[in-house]
Design a binder for these strands. Structure first.
Lengths: 217, 217
DNA sequence: GTGAAAATTAATGCATACGCAAAAAAATGC
DNA sequence: GCATTTTTTTGCGTATGCATTAATTTTCAC
């Protein structure tokens, strides 16, 4: 694995874990030393992550970890809503067999189990798996990579809202409905159910952040 | 302007003009010499363009200009359909004044004029302006940059299909309808009209390419 | 003491050099 | 003549150094 690759995944990890907090600036040379390599692979990695919307390269100021504003969240959830709903619709058009929907079903099972023991981290992980698998089943690689990018951008926010929100009971019912619509090969229903699901989640989270005056993450 | 910036716009131009044809490979050192700079800014530019889906960096093979397959076109038009329809919907929610919709109206006027004198290049330019302005009015910067990226990826294909397709009379009517729905602040109608418009264009182009056995561009 | 101008510092942008791994070419054995 | 091994070549990945330029500090005039 190349140093540039390592720099990409390492920097991602540092951003997601909060070791490089939103809004902070870091010199290329600092990061290079921190990751034990020269500036070159750091610069290449930074350019990649910049185009993925995680950070920004500013001349003489180093790389800035991009904060996510309320407005950003609105934009991102809107994109996620549309593209994932498209994926659900397309998935339902494929007439997948039960076996092919196994991963989706297992993600739902895990969410239910996590919810019963109130393990929110485990629930969030399974929720992630559900959404990743859904867009995979949708069969559009561009939808998959765009939604992955958008999810990355709000990953920090989720860590905050996860413990502020009510137990995601409604979410679980939504997922079940989307799954059944896909299994029954009902594209319109799959689309509309997922659309409503994402819209609800969006409104709930934006409302939550607004009420807690968290305008930046 | 930095050499990296120049490399980005120059490489884009070379790709769009066909001077670097789809599927061709080019050594970093060749491109560096061609653009009169060292490999470093070429590599940085290539990484940026890679994340925009225009080319691919392959070890020891240089950069490969990515061809666009029929399947790619399907994916791209699907994404464009959903995100632009969202933009139309959101634009209609803003209650824009006539003045604020001026650029959109002017794009439509230009398309009509171009159509009457059968100037397809001028029509395509105005059509571009319409779609760019539409997503701008939608107010979601991520939708704007994603649709711009997707449009870039099919730009080569459009040059081919433009002169194969029937005169875009239907398209012009569609645009008019979307414009009116936005002016009348009817989000659902704006969404549905634009969705149908894009879907029609998609089916027409895919059909055209398939009948002409153009499976790669 | 204040403001402008000059000097200094510092970090990027880029050119360049080199090692290494992979591909191509050549040599060798059968 | 073909396959296999060895040699050579080639091009990328990365480190390094320097020039450029923006930011900062210092100096100096008023």
């Amino acid at each position: 694995m190349s140093n540039t690759q390592r720099a990409i995944s390492e920097l991602r990890r540092l951003v997601f874990s909060g070791e490089l907090p939103a809004g902070s600036d870091h010199l290329e040379s600092e990061l290079a030393e921190r990751l034990g390599m020269s500036r070159t692979p750091i610069r290449e990695a930074a350019r990649t992550l910049e185009s993925q919307g995680l950070l920004e390269l500013r001349a003489r100021k180093g790389v800035r970890i991009l904060p996510v504003s309320l407005e950003d969240m609105r934009e991102i959830y809107d994109v996620l809503t549309e593209l994932e709903s498209l994926a659900a619709e397309r998935a339902a058009e494929q007439h997948y067999t039960g076996a092919e929907l196994g991963e989706l079903a297992s993600a739902i099972t895990d969410m239910k189990a996590a919810l019963e023991v109130k393990d929110l981290e485990a629930w969030a992980d399974a929720d992630d798996r559900f959404h990743v698998e859904l867009v995979r089943l949708g069969g559009n690689s561009r939808v998959a990579s765009i939604t992955a990018m958008m999810s990355d951008q709000v990953r920090r926010a989720r860590a905050v809202t996860l413990f502020m929100r009510p137990l995601p009971v409604q979410s679980n019912e939504d997922h079940q409905g989307v799954y059944e619509a896909i299994a029954k090969a009902d594209p319109k229903r799959a689309h509309d159910l997922h659309h409503a699901h994402r819209q609800r989640a969006r409104d709930m989270i934006l409302d939550l952040l607004e009420r807690h005056r968290l305008r930046q993450l």
